[in-house]
C-alpha cells in the first residue's frame, strides 16, 4: 500500500515538474539565442519608387476578400482624408493603406504604404495571452481567430498601430490584420498580392537578409537619392517589411521614436519578478505572521503548561 501511494505521489510530482520544466523555461532559453528565422522572407518598400497608384490596396482587397471599399481604388481623393488629424490607417476593411506626404522643399509628393511589418519579435505575439499569433519560419506573423478572445492587447502593444478589430460584429468579431498572404501565397513561396500588383517594383520581395543587402546597395550606389537608413532593420528588434526613403523618415509619417529593441524587452523587468514573488512571498509572510503572533503563541503555551500542572 505504502509503495503505491508514494509512487503515485512521485508520479504526480514528476508530472507537475515535467510540465513546468517543459512549458515554462523553454520559451525563455530559446528567446535568449533566437535571432529570427534565417530564411524568413520580407519586403523592402522603396518610397522613392512609389507613385501612389493604390494597386497594392486593390490587390489586397481582392486577395483577402475584404469588404467593398467606400471609394474605388483608382480614386485618389482618399489621400486628402483626415480623421482626428490623422491620415488613413488600417481598419477592419483594409489591411494596407497608401498615404500621400507633401514634404516641404520637395517638388513631388511621396507615398508610404503601411501594412503589418511582420516583426522578428512581434509585440502582438508576445502580448497575446492565448497564443493567437504565430511567427512562421517564412516570416509572416499570422493570427488564429479560433482562440482569440478579443481583448485587443495586441492592438495596444503593436508599435505600428496595425492590428484592427472587427468592432462591427457582435457574434463573429476578430482581429483584422495583414498576414503577408500567408495561406494563399507565402506558404508556397509566392510573393504577397500587393507586391505582385506593384507596377513600380516599389515593393521588393525576398529573403530578409537579401533585402538588407539590396537596400544597402541602393544606398551605397545612389547616396544622393536615399537617407542612409533602412527603417525596420533594427526598429523594434527588426521587421520583415523594411523601408527606404529619400527624406528623413519622420517627414513621411514614420514613428522614429520606436525603440530599437524588441517591445518584449520593456516587459521583462516585470516578468523577472514573478518567480521571485511566487517563491519568496509565502515564506516571507508566513515568517511575519509567526513573528507578529509570537506573543499570543507564548501566552497560549504558558496557559497550557499551567493547566497541565
Amino acid at each position: 500500500m505504502k509503495t503505491t501511494v508514494s509512487r503515485r505521489t512521485f508520479i504526480k510530482g514528476g508530472l507537475a515538474g515535467t510540465v513546468v520544466a517543459t512549458v515554462l523555461p523553454e520559451k525563455k532559453s530559446q528567446a535568449a539565442t533566437f535571432e529570427g528565422y534565417p530564411d524568413g522572407m520580407g519586403v523592402l518598400v522603396d518610397l522613392t519608387r512609389c507613385v501612389g497608384c493604390r494597386s497594392c490596396e486593390a490587390a489586397c482587397n481582392e486577395e483577402q476578400k475584404l469588404p467593398q471599399p467606400d471609394k474605388p481604388f483608382d480614386d485618389f481623393s482618399v489621400f486628402d482624408e483626415i480623421h482626428h488629424g490623422q491620415k488613413r490607417r488600417t481598419d477592419e476593411t483594409r489591411y494596407t493603406v497608401v498615404n500621400r506626404y507633401d514634404v516641404p522643399g520637395l517638388d513631388h509628393p511621396l507615398f508610404r504604404k503601411i501594412q503589418c511589418n511582420h516583426c522578428q519579435e512581434p509585440a502582438c505575439l508576445t502580448s497575446c495571452f492565448v497564443n493567437a499569433y504565430t511567427k512562421t519560419p517564412e516570416g509572416a506573423v499570422i493570427y488564429n481567430p479560433n482562440v482569440c478572445v478579443g481583448c485587443r492587447t495586441c492592438m495596444i502593444a503593436c508599435p505600428f498601430n496595425i492590428p484592427t478589430f472587427k468592432y462591427s460584429s457582435a457574434f463573429n468579431p476578430r482581429i483584422m490584420k495583414c498576414i503577408f498572404c500567408y495561406d494563399t501565397r507565402l506558404k508556397e513561396g509566392r510573393p504577397p498580392a500587393c507586391v505582385e500588383a506593384c507596377p513600380q517594383e516599389a515593393l521588393t520581395f525576398g529573403k530578409r537578409n537579401k533585402l538588407l543587402e539590396i537596400g544597402r546597395q541602393r544606398i551605397r550606389e545612389t547616396p544622393d537619392k536615399y537617407e542612409d537608413h533602412i527603417y525596420g532593420e533594427h526598429e523594434v528588434g527588426g521587421t520583415a517589411w523594411m523601408y527606404l526613403s529619400s527624406v528623413p523618415f519622420d517627414q513621411v509619417g514614420f514613428d522614429t521614436h520606436v525603440p530599437k529593441e524588441p517591445i518584449l524587452n520593456y516587459v521583462k523587468d516585470f516578468l523577472g519578478i514573478v518567480p521571485m514573488v511566487l517563491t519568496v512571498w509565502p515564506a516571507l509572510f508566513a515568517g511575519f505572521h509567526l513573528l507578529a503572533t509570537r506573543k499570543d503563541w507564548l501566552k497560549n503555551k504558558n496557559e497550557d503548561t499551567h493547566e497541565e500542572e
Partner: peptide, 27 residues
C-alpha cells in the same frame, strides 16, 4: 484599364454604389 482591371480596382461598372459602400466603422 481593362474589364479585369475595373473589377480589381472596383471602379467603372464595378464601382461601389452610394448605398452599399458604407460598411465602414473604424473612424
Amino acid at each position: 484599364m481593362t474589364e479585369a482591371g475595373e473589377k480589381m480596382f472596383q471602379t467603372g461598372q464595378h464601382a461601389p454604389s452610394e448605398t452599399t459602400g458604407g460598411e465602414h466603422s473604424g473612424h
